[in-house]
């Protein structure tokens, strides 16, 4: 999947597309995607803390309990290990649970269930069980929140064999990716960039994509490849705009699926540009940016004109929110990395 997909397929028949394109927030689009999945399959369940009457603290499940009932949209006791562990049992029983974890930093009581059971059951049982459950995690910083509400723990999950990890970055992808995650017979950790929840973009709800949501080129370019996902995509695109104003042509890639990585488009781009900058909000050591950088070095070494640059959080705990602007990757930090790559 190497064609450029800046946004949904607007190039399709003009009138037909116009009818199906909606300008929606990422949050509303997720809500619509969940609704579509629940309508398509009566075995799809939504479960988590405050997902029922409240509609979730971010309102992603707003209205679902009212329309699908308390047995399909369940307010659970306040226990993440309980939510995920019980979802495992429900999945064994033929359901497709969609678990909501309220904030990134709260997933860890459930981490044991994910790493010990969710990820290993298919392997252990030699395929006797599949584990079609989805764990939705609002993640990332930039919302001025207190501790444990702004983390980017995706690398922990990418390190676990047996689960897929994805991150959506815009409303259109959110709508389809959540449905693909729920339809998957393998477990999916679904990262939602919470500070992008209220950003609007065009969503094509009519034309179901026939490919999985792997790496996509968001903006073509020639001199440097900017690689991001989820919350960092607007940063990467803004940096590409700013670079263009300085006469630098940057190609922007959205990984979308973090595990397993879809590397071919990345390698193809880097072979073309010769330079790569990988962007993540997570701490640098052992991050997904490190993995992408290593794979580029392994497989496109001779195309590289400069070492792969990483723009990441620091190797510290997430700081108090008044300092998060300093901590997070931003346009200046990305441009700084672009300059370093170009001047190497």
């Amino acid at each position: 999947m190497t064609e450029t997909q800046a946004q949904p397929a607007q190039q399709q028949t003009a009138e037909g597309a116009a009818e199906t394109l909606q300008n929606l927030t990422l949050a509303k689009s997720l809500n619509n995607g969940l609704r579509a999945a629940m309508e398509a399959d009566p075995k799809v369940l939504v479960m988590g803390e405050d997902v029922g009457k409240l509609g979730g603290v971010f309102r992603i499940t707003d209205g679902l309990q009212k329309d699908f009932g308390e047995h399909r949209v369940m307010d659970t006791p306040l226990a993440e290990s309980g939510i995920i562990g019980a979802a495992v049992g429900l999945a064994m029983r033929g359901y497709r649970p969609v678990c909501e974890i309220q904030f990134d930093g709260f997933v860890f009581p459930g981490f044991d269930q994910i790493i010990s059971q969710v990820a290993k059951i298919t392997y252990r049982s030699q395929g006797a069980w599949s584990m079609p459950l989805t764990v939705r995690i609002p993640y990332g910083g930039g919302i001025g929140a207190v501790e444990h509400h702004a983390e980017s723990p995706e690398a922990f999950f990418c390190h676990i064999a047996g689960i897929k990890v994805v991150a959506c970055s815009n409303a259109h992808d959110a709508y389809w990716m959540i449905q693909q995650a729920i339809a998957s017979n393998d477990p999916v950790i679904f990262f939602e960039p919470k500070r992008r929840y209220w950003e609007k973009s065009k969503v094509d709800t009519a034309n179901k994509p026939d490919t999985t949501f792997s790496t996509v080129v968001r903006r073509p370019g020639d001199q440097v490849t900017l690689i991001g996902y989820g919350a960092t995509m607007p940063v990467a695109l803004a940096a590409a705009d700013a670079a263009a104003a300085e006469g630098i042509s940057a190609e922007v890639l959205d990984l979308r699926t973090l595990s397993p990585l879809d590397l071919d488009p990345v390698l193809e781009s880097v072979r073309h540009t010769g330079r790569a900058v990988v962007i993540t909000e997570a701490p640098r050591e052992g991050s997904l940016a490190s993995e992408v950088a290593a794979r580029i070095s392994e497989e496109a070494f001779h195309s590289l004109a400069a070492p792969v640059q990483r723009v990441t959080g620091f190797d510290t705990p997430y700081p108090p929110s008044k300092l998060e602007e300093e901590y997070l990757p931003d346009l200046d930090k990305v441009l700084f990395a672009v300059d370093r790559a170009l001047s190497y």
């Binding site: 803390e49 405050d50 009457k53 409240l54 006791p77």
Partner: peptide, 10 residues
């Protein structure tokens, strides 16, 4: 109350 969930949920 645990945010929106009444004690009976626990």
């Amino acid at each position: 109350w645990a945010i929106s969930e009444p004690i009976e949920k626990m």
